[in-house]
């Protein structure tokens, strides 16, 4: 069986937020909740990069490990889903998640957060596939319709990839190889400059360690 993964290629992401919009629209997620977000580092500086993040559907998911009511489960496609009927809105998954994927509709007094909501890899939830309940709680079940998550499908630059981990890995590997060739052609120094404005001291040390 295929193991579903996302991969966001920072070299390609142009921070258009198309994935965010697509996700919200397709799944009709509640107000205040964004299952996917685009984070930009070094905004406006040299080496600026953007990444689109959502639930990474970890193989060994920390959220599932800390959940006090054990509401998470992994589908046979490797998608990490949760049961909103069981969720108590405690927020532990949000503390444990490396990516900040779990979202809560509220952030009110007496820790009233509402049910946790997160990216489902457009795979719905535990309700009957394609049912209205499933759509209301979890959004569209595109996977059951034989489609991939809309965020990735909509990505204009094909930065965001979704699908079978093996396929995605192959695509990415191909890209890295191509880029390596191009950076060899243009020189490594140039490439490094672009990534990171390294302080002089740091650069010397790194160079030194390079030998």
């Amino acid at each position: 069986m295929a193991r579903m993964k996302f991969y966001c290629d920072a070299e390609r992401c142009i921070e258009c937020n198309g994935c965010v919009t697509a996700c919200k629209n397709e799944n009709e997620v509640p107000w205040g909740v964004n299952r996917r977000r685009v984070v930009t580092i070094k905004d406006g500086e040299r080496g600026e990069r953007s990444l689109s993040v959502a639930c990474m559907h970890c193989s060994d998911a920390p959220c599932a490990a800390v959940c006090p009511v054990d509401c998470f489960y992994t589908t046979k496609e490797g998608v990490v889903l949760h049961d909103k009927d069981i969720c108590i809105g405690c927020g532990y998954c949000f503390y444990a998640c490396p990516f900040g994927a779990p979202q809560f509709p509220e952030d009110g007094a007496f820790a009233s957060r509402g049910k946790m909501d997160k990216c489902t890899f457009c795979a719905g939830g535990p309700e009957e596939t394609g049912s209205a309940d499933e759509f209301r709680k979890y959004g569209r079940n595109r996977l059951a319709e034989g489609k991939l998550p809309l965020c990735a499908e909509m990505c204009a630059t094909k930065a965001l990839l979704a699908g079978d981990a093996n396929v995605i890995a192959d695509i990415y590997r191909q890209r890295v190889v191509n880029r390596a060739a191009s950076s060899l052609a243009h020189g490594v120094e140039l490439q490094r400059q672009k990534f990171r404005a390294t302080p002089e001291r740091e650069r010397t040390r790194t160079r030194g360690s390079e030998g």
Partner: peptide
């Protein structure tokens, strides 16, 4: 930075 408003949204 991110355009999404939320707790620790800017933390990758």
């Amino acid at each position: 930075t991110t355009q999404v408003q939320g707790r620790d949204s800017q933390v990758l």
